[in-house]
Design a binder for these strands. Structure first.
Lengths: 158, 158
DNA sequence: TTGATATCAAGAATTATTCTAAATAAAGAT
DNA sequence: ATCTTTATTTAGAATAATTCTTGATATCAA
């Protein structure tokens, strides 16, 4: 189902096939997905709604939530949570963490270093199955960190 | 201020000293902290409220939120966020991640492997300062994972 | 075209959390 | 011990993000 929807979206086909409950590629879902692809600044649902509404005035906030949920479940989009802030959405499917600057509030994607694995640093319990991992960081981005050029060490927080 | 409050709590002194706005060690703060220490199962604010109310019937939910906020700001307690669920609270100050079993809903603390550092795997942007990092995992814990004994590889999610 | 079903839209409802304002309690000074 | 000042508590109202509900609409397969 995941790849089915993606295939259909990227291929701009009209249908997601009848399989698995029959996900449909609707104008709204396509629009919401396009909005995310067009400006990859990790918008909130409301921001996506505003941008979507500019292109399709009839779309509703509830629909935007529905579409974001569907796209996330389908694996096309990632829901980004940092603390208790409103969820943000991101079409970057590569494994990455998120970093929010507490000053300018921009959200940055942080990629893995080459040949590294996130799991490698954690003492995961034997026998468990991890199928979702979310890494969120907060701090000052390079621009806002102005004077201090060192890539400072973290505080004790986890 | 952080260490001041901790010192006073652990020493069971009556005051947090006049420094830095004068944090006071009140019965409510002590109680909320004790509740967290007594049962380290990552309760939500409401759960902390229920447990606290059993020992001090006059305490209010707003106060519990206040205390949890104060204790977190003081560094005695960590606020744990996994996805959009209600925040949970944890008195474990060691660097660790959180793992929530999607079946039994238990929250586990995941420690770092020896000599590993979280930051080491991420390509952090030059010049930025990270001062908070939160790592949340979801999956099936060993018990709930029953049959499959492999510590399974993660899916693509981050 | 038509029937079955998925999806949409609008607004109500829910939930966690924060805010407000008056009452209370703590710490230091008298 | 009492007084004063200021932090904190309390209860309830307010807020904000998200989910739910329901009737209308769009889409797919036949």
């Amino acid at each position: 189902m995941v790849s089915k929807l993606r295939q259909d979206i990227t291929a701009k086909s009209k249908s997601a096939g009848g399989a698995l409950g029959g996900l449909r590629m609707t104008r709204q879902r396509k629009l919401v997905y396009d909005v995310l692809l067009d400006e990859r600044d990790h918008p909130t649902a409301t921001e996506v709604f505003i941008r979507s509404k500019a292109r399709m005035s009839s779309i509703s906030l509830a629909t935007v939530y529905n579409c974001l949920e569907t796209l996330s479940a389908a694996g096309l989009v990632k829901q980004v949570n940092v603390g208790r802030d409103a969820s943000r959405y991101c079409p970057n499917l590569a494994e990455h963490a998120h970093f929010v600057c507490v000053k300018c509030e921009k959200v940055y994607d942080i990629g893995l270093k080459c040949n590294e694995e996130v799991e490698s640093v954690w003492a995961l319990p034997e026998g468990s199955r991890i199928d979702h991992l979310e890494v969120a960081m907060k701090g000052l981005c390079a621009e806002c960190n102005g004077g201090d050029k060192r890539s400072g060490k973290m505080e004790e927080q986890v």
